[in-house]
Amino acid sequence: MSVASQDTTIRTGRVTRALIYLTLLLFALFYLMPLFVMVVNSLKPLHEITSGNMMALPEVWTIEPWRKAWSEAQIGVQATGLKPYFWNSIKMVVPAVFLSTMLGALNGYVLTKWRFRGDTILFGLMLFACFIPFQIVLIPMARVLGIFGLAGTTWGLVLVHLVYGIGFTTLYFRNYYAAFPTELVRAAQIDGAGFFQIFWRILLPSSGPIIVVSVIWQFTNIWNDFLFGASFADFSSQPMTVALNNLVQSSHGVKEYNVHFAAAILAALPTLLVYIVAGRYFVRGLMAGSVKG
């Protein structure tokens, strides 16, 4: 913001200001409360939860629920904890994020610097694909994955996330490259650089911020996905979210709330960490998905 904006603060009275601060703080508590509950109760023995106060700090601190959630908890039929599902998620997320970002970058490059008749329509078709309710593709997708032998595999999920992610990554790179001077591309053409050389040598080195945005967005979305994981994965490929839900919904045995909370945090941890480290880029990704340009 410029210096000129300093003196244009909307003036508010002291009482109004106090009320504003109070409201803001109350909402901060509202947003923080579930995280607090999760953390505090994941560090308590079970009886402290069932007999006591959810908001209280643990009387006896323990990391036993975390250990249990990670490696022992009964999920589905096996008592494996979340560990194998964590790796399932990683094996799915990494290639899906990489491929969708690469394709998105190339698409954005073509759609802004090598425009042709009808390119906007094609882009519109790709963009609309981001917003469809995925229920509409579940049935045929299940069939197609079956036909290609990808049903229940991690690669099947990678394919699914790639297909339904390139709309967003293309959007990011297209908006970013639209602001990239076309004269640079023309200069490189005259210098004798070809299609891929221009991309590698001229555009990609300047794409750092948007690559981060795209990677974070894709990582968060794919990691947090439940519908595809629940529909197309089997035990060898189920992601964290599905495992967490199975753990929490399982009806047999005692409900170990402390383990559930620890598991929920474990499932949230990677995206939370990304958010804490690179929140700025996360917000940029969110905004680009709504207010374009």
């Binding site: 579930p34 990691w223 439940f226 839900n245 929920a264 499932a267 949230a268 958010y275 929140g279």
Partner: peptide
């Protein structure tokens, strides 16, 4: 400090959100 607190739930999976609120 407030802005990231308001926004962090967006980074969570709906499954995590659901689990937390289910027990709360």
């Amino acid at each position: 400090a407030l802005r990231p607190i308001y926004l962090y739930p967006m980074a969570l999976s709906f499954i995590v959100t659901g689990t937390a609120w289910k027990w709360i």
